[in-house]
């Protein structure tokens, strides 16, 4: 059996653009339509940004089910965020605002700008980015081979949290919000968890829940992932 493409040298036509665009095409591209938050019917009259005690931004691939189950309990969904199934939730009793963001780098700059009014009004902000473990870079990578999760902070000064080291970094809306708060010298705690299971299962969720609790985020103590159809691999 042949292996198409094996041994071929695939050179990207351009490194300049994240989205699919050739270098000679972008000049003729139409200006992008502005993205907007889509407010739910119940909160349609209440579109002004809410002032929260704590804004929690959680971002990663397939994060929606985990975050809505463990973090959005007793919260009211305010609006959908234009990046896949992303959404914004408000818990009036704890004054906690929650942004759940599915991984979508191509709209992350624009979505960051949409969420900045909320980040401006928040007394404190916690961002958490979930990434696959293979993206973690370290000169001692063998040391982490058995770890379920690698937890790192960016400028958090927390005793039990190790600081993220270059060349690692985070990218996306959480990075945008954290970067803005940091430049404005407003309180922000930014974390990244490199996990070996995405979407999270009940074991991989434990370090995430432990971290969220340690920084004062109201959440459940465990997570049960949605039931999947059997694989049909075996009788």
């Amino acid at each position: 059996m042949s292996c198409p493409g094996f041994g071929e040298l695939n050179i990207p036509s351009s490194r300049a653009f994240w989205d699919d665009c050739e270098e000679d095409e972008f000049e003729n591209m139409k200006p992008a339509e502005k993205l907007q938050l889509k407010f739910d019917v119940e909160s349609a009259g209440d579109v002004a940004p809410v002032a929260s005690d704590l804004l929690v931004v959680i971002e990663g691939p397939h994060v929606t089910h985990f975050a809505t189950t463990v973090l959005a309990k007793d919260s009211k969904r305010l609006c959908s965020i234009p990046a896949k199934t992303s959404s914004l939730h408000w818990n009036a009793s704890s004054k906690q605002l929650l942004a759940i963001l599915e991984d979508d780098l191509s709209s992350s700059g624009e979505v960051t700008e949409l969420l900045l009014p909320y980040a401006k009004l928040a007394k404190n902000v916690v961002t958490l980015t979930l990434k696959p473990k293979v993206e973690f870079k370290s000169e001692e990578i063998q040391f982490y081979s058995d770890h379920v999760a690698i937890v790192r902070g960016v400028g958090v000064n927390q005793k039990d949290i190790t600081e993220l080291e270059a060349p690692n970094f985070i990218a996306g809306v959480a990075a945008g919000i954290a970067s803005w708060r940091d430049q404005e010298e407003l309180p922000v705690s930014s974390f990244v968890i490199y996990t070996d299971k995405l979407p999270l299962d009940s074991t991989a969720a434990q370090p995430v829940l432990k971290l969220l609790k340690s920084v004062g985020v109201t959440c459940n103590s465990s997570y049960i992932p949605p039931r999947k159809e059997s694989s049909y691999l075996y009788m």
């Binding site: 700059g109 960051t112 270059a166 945008g176 970067s179 930014s190």
Partner: peptide, 23 residues
């Protein structure tokens, strides 16, 4: 910052400015 730029945040890229954060 601009919608054309994918936001990035992390530890400093340079030895001479260890407390900066990349963007």
């Amino acid at each position: 910052t601009h919608p054309a730029l994918i936001p990035v945040y992390g530890p400093s890229a340079y030895q001479h400015e260890p407390n900066e954060k990349v963007s």
